[in-house]
């Protein structure tokens, strides 16, 4: 079982950026994209986001399943939202809708407004995902802690995130060992008998030893850190990060995007756009 962040973007232009840029860019992008509602603006933003994503050179074959899953889930929820709201949310709240057709058996309305809202929602999510994917695949896992620290996150929290990433492969190994050990004792992890509560309780022979064993094992880590005086003084990091000119330009563009999106939102220039060909 291999549970770790695959560094798929290694060697790409985006991976050679300071990791802080990727983290701050994603936060600024979420701030900006959350304020945009017009599907034409979101369309432009999505294209730019995909351009940014491509600079990470993440092999399509390696993330194809993730993209399909993500788009399917987003589309499902957006469609469900359309069914429930009938297109009477956002800018179209209280407006008369243009019903395209109704779905049996309850006669749920699919309106031009609903489809327009669905499009905005799917494009926003896809754009945010395109900016977020490189954090997983174009930042060296070992750089995450120091990047957070240099962004002003407290030393202890930065170390905690670093430890989390480092613990995952170890715990995945312990999990696999526990399943094997319980299987030897007659436990069947694939059993599908019983209701959800029974099945939930049946997971206890896996969950309990892995969790309690990990906590007990953590005592050694705590002792080792305490003995080295962790947390009693300022911590230094071996890895040094430095912005270059490209980093500043990239960050500047994301800051500009957040400012423009805020301006459009505050001045009411990003209302939901009703797709004209549906009316």
């Amino acid at each position: 079982m291999r549970a770790a962040f695959p560094y798929l973007g290694r060697g790409s232009w985006l991976a050679s950026r300071d990791p802080r840029v990727l983290l701050v860019a994603a936060i600024l992008f979420v701030i900006g994209a959350s304020q945009l509602r017009d599907s034409r603006q979101l369309g432009v933003v999505l294209v730019l986001a995909l351009g940014y994503y491509c600079t990470a050179r993440i092999p399509w074959r390696a993330v194809r399943v993730q993209w399909i899953y993500l788009l399917a889930v987003i589309s499902f929820f957006a469609f469900f939202n359309t069914l429930i709201s009938g297109g009477r949310t956002g800018t179209f709240t209280g407006a008369e809708t243009h019903v395209l057709f109704t779905l049996p058996p309850f006669g749920a309305e699919i309106s031009a407004e609903g489809v327009s809202l669905m499009l905005s929602q799917v494009m926003r999510y896809a754009a945010v995902a395109a900016i977020g994917f490189p954090i997983a695949y174009a930042i060296a896992p070992g750089d995450l802690g120091v990047a957070l620290r240099r962004l002003g996150v407290a030393d202890k929290i930065a170390v905690m995130v670093d430890l989390t990433v480092r613990f995952i492969p170890t715990l995945a190994g312990e999990f696999a060992e526990t399943i094997d050990a319980q299987r030897v004792r007659g436990y069947d992890p694939t059993a599908r008998k019983g209701g959800p509560i029974t099945r939930l309780r049946r997971l206890a022979p896996i969950f309990v030893p892995v969790t309690v064993g990990s906590i007990a094992g953590a005592e050694d880590t705590i002792d080792a850190m305490d003995l080295r005086g962790f947390g009693v003084g300022r911590r230094t990091w071996l890895r040094h990060l430095k912005f270059d000119a490209f980093d500043f330009v990239l960050l500047g563009l994301f800051v500009l995007f957040a400012i423009v999106a805020t301006f459009l939102n505050v001045t009411g220039r990003t209302d939901h756009y009703l797709l004209p060909f549906l009316v």
Partner: peptide
Amino acid sequence: AMGQSEGTWSVTTRVIVYAAIGAAL
């Protein structure tokens, strides 16, 4: 460790490691 209080909201070594284990799991 010296200098690390154990209040409800303190962030001690123990808190860091338990949180990391919990988050990883």
